[in-house]
Design a binder for these strands. Structure first.
Lengths: 181, 181
DNA sequence: ACCTGAACACCGTTCAAGT
DNA sequence: ACCTGAACACCGTTCAAGT
């Protein structure tokens, strides 16, 4: 029995039954302990949520870069991040609520800055461009998740929206503009 | 004593002390009623949160359109929405959590579509472009709020980021690209 | 129609006590 | 060092009962 193990079981519980299922008492019974033992290992519930957020952030943060030219590589980073975020929207919401979004985006931010530098954008401008690309990506995810949850919104279109394609297009346009500035 | 009044007092409470302060018991004492009276007027807590989300969405949804040319007008819509969202980030989070984001964005979506049509973008493409612009805007807000909450992230830049200006720039670029497609 | 009081099952947390 | 049990203050919700 260790802090890591307790946090791991908590993560399993959240993934299996959602954030509402995570109560100190429920977690204790899952661990085969008395409720109060958790307080010895990880501290109070706030500390537990922080630890969870940290784990999830590390999990979602690593992305693979593909392609040859800068634009393709940058768009591939955005696409990979978007995919990771879409896979576990509830967990991302948890991270955001705990205020750990910065940690979540940090590795991607670095990867983006590296590619932008390689593309000839330098210094502060690379920081700015990373910020814009990250905003665009997280916003796209946020909206897509929301639409998936509330399918009322589906309007009468001649053909349904391909959100993957639309994201690819908009991010490509944006990236080109940021590089050619 | 009416449903509207109960919801109004609940909204005041949330704005003054945050979402955690909104408990059925606290709200009852604020109203001068017994806890159970709330159940008669608005139903259970889920119903109360739904009603709150509806109000907030209507409040944040109305934006003023300014400017002459299409790009300026569209950017002004995005800017106004961003400003509204930034003013009450906690309430926006509440709306999102309740799954009412679609309602929140509906009026803006319509306004954007109208401007895009006027700019010569037609039918489905206007829908797609509205979606992209909305995503970009909400993502920008989401990131800015997060950074404001966790100021650790401030990196060593030669000059600090002007997020208003950056948003204006990126949305302008994006809008032009969407129109000229 | 509108409101109260008592009761139930559930929280997070503290603290003394055990080994 | 690690864990338990009892206790406290707080939740949301139901339901019978009052006017």
């Amino acid at each position: 029995m260790s802090r890591d193990h307790v946090v791991g079981v908590a993560l399993d519980l959240v993934q299996a039954e959602g954030i509402d299922a995570l109560t100190m008492r429920r977690l204790a019974s899952e661990l085969g302990l008395a409720v109060t033992a958790i307080y010895w290992h990880v501290g109070d519930k706030q500390a537990l949520l922080d630890a969870l957020a940290e784990r999830i952030a590390a999990q979602v943060g690593d992305v693979e870069v593909r392609g040859d030219d800068p634009v393709t590589r940058i768009v591939s980073i955005g696409t990979a991040l978007r995919q990771n975020l879409l896979e576990q929207p509830e967990l991302v919401g948890l991270v955001h609520q705990q205020g750990h979004t910065a940690e979540l985006f940090q590795p991607v931010r670095v990867a983006l800055a590296r590619e932008l530098l390689a593309a000839g954008v330098d210094g502060d401008d690379a920081e700015l461009a990373s910020h814009v690309i990250l905003s665009h990506t997280s916003g796209s995810v946020l909206n897509d998740v929301q639409i998936a949850r509330a399918p009322v919104q589906q309007e009468a279109l001649s053909r349904p929206i391909d959100r993957d394609e639309l994201f690819d297009y908009s991010l490509t346009v944006l990236t080109k503009a940021l590089i050619d500035r």
